[in-house]
């Protein structure tokens, strides 16, 4: 489902060039729950951005959910992010001015041309279903600022699920959560894996990695 080959990603720090990922290889089978662990600054987030089509400026080959990311145009990459992958971030990345249900509806607003798009009413219904799945149907109209950290992360997971993606990419999803909330998130991921979703989590928390079927260590830009 996820196949990364010889991935190298460099950043420019003034005149200096820094390689964050170095000739990295990664394979994740369909329906697997994989955790990538490593210290802060080791390139875990960069790895997710490359795999999720957010960062197209890299060397190597990346095939995710059957799409060769190197060959996709910017518009095709956007379509890929909309339909094939879902993101969950450590800082939730919800739009603070929109109620939970509107945040969950967002991916449905960007359905690319050529694919039937639901009406706003249908979209709202689907968003409420997704919120129900994460146990937040009663808080659909709340702004993110009026939700706890765990609730915000569950809203973010509901949003990631809206498009029924094949791959879920999570960046430190429990990093800002207490133990109970973190456990709830892990349970949600496990449930998604049972539903056939491929989950790739980057984390430095053992409670997450211990739930994964495959754990990889990222050091010096390479997986071990």
């Amino acid at each position: 489902m996820i196949s990364l080959r010889h991935i190298t990603k460099r950043f420019h720090d003034g005149e200096r060039e820094v390689a964050v990922l170095r000739d990295l290889d990664l394979d994740v089978a369909a329906g697997a729950f994989t955790a990538v662990v490593g210290p802060s600054g080791s390139g875990k987030s960069t790895l997710l951005y490359v795999a999720g089509g957010l960062d197209a400026d890299f060397d190597g080959e990346a095939v995710v959910a059957g799409k060769d990311l190197r060959t996709l145009s910017a518009r095709e990459r956007a379509s890929f992010r909309n339909g094939s992958v879902g993101f969950v971030f450590q800082s939730f990345n919800l739009l603070p001015s929109l109620p939970a249900v509107e945040n969950v509806m967002l991916p449905g607003l960007f359905v690319p041309p050529g694919i039937p798009a639901p009406s706003i009413g249908q979209l709202r219904g689907r968003a409420l279903e997704a919120l129900d799945r994460v146990g937040l149907a009663d808080k659909a109209s709340r702004l993110p600022g009026r939700l706890s950290g765990g609730e915000r992360q569950r809203v973010a997971i509901a949003r990631a699920l809206l498009s029924r993606p094949a791959v879920l990419l999570a960046d430190e999803p429990t990093g800002n959560l207490d133990a109970v909330s973190g456990e709830a998130v892990i349970q949600l991921f496990s449930g998604m894996v049972r539903d056939g979703v491929t989950v790739l989590v980057v984390t430095h928390e053992e409670r997450v990695s211990s739930a994964a079927g495959q754990v990889l260590h990222l050091e010096d830009g390479r997986l071990r």
Binding site: R75, A78, F87, N93, P107, F110
Partner: peptide, 16 residues
Amino acid sequence: TRDIAILQSLGATAGD
């Protein structure tokens, strides 16, 4: 800027 990046992560194109 961050909100716009979030929308892009959810499938918004530059044109959107």
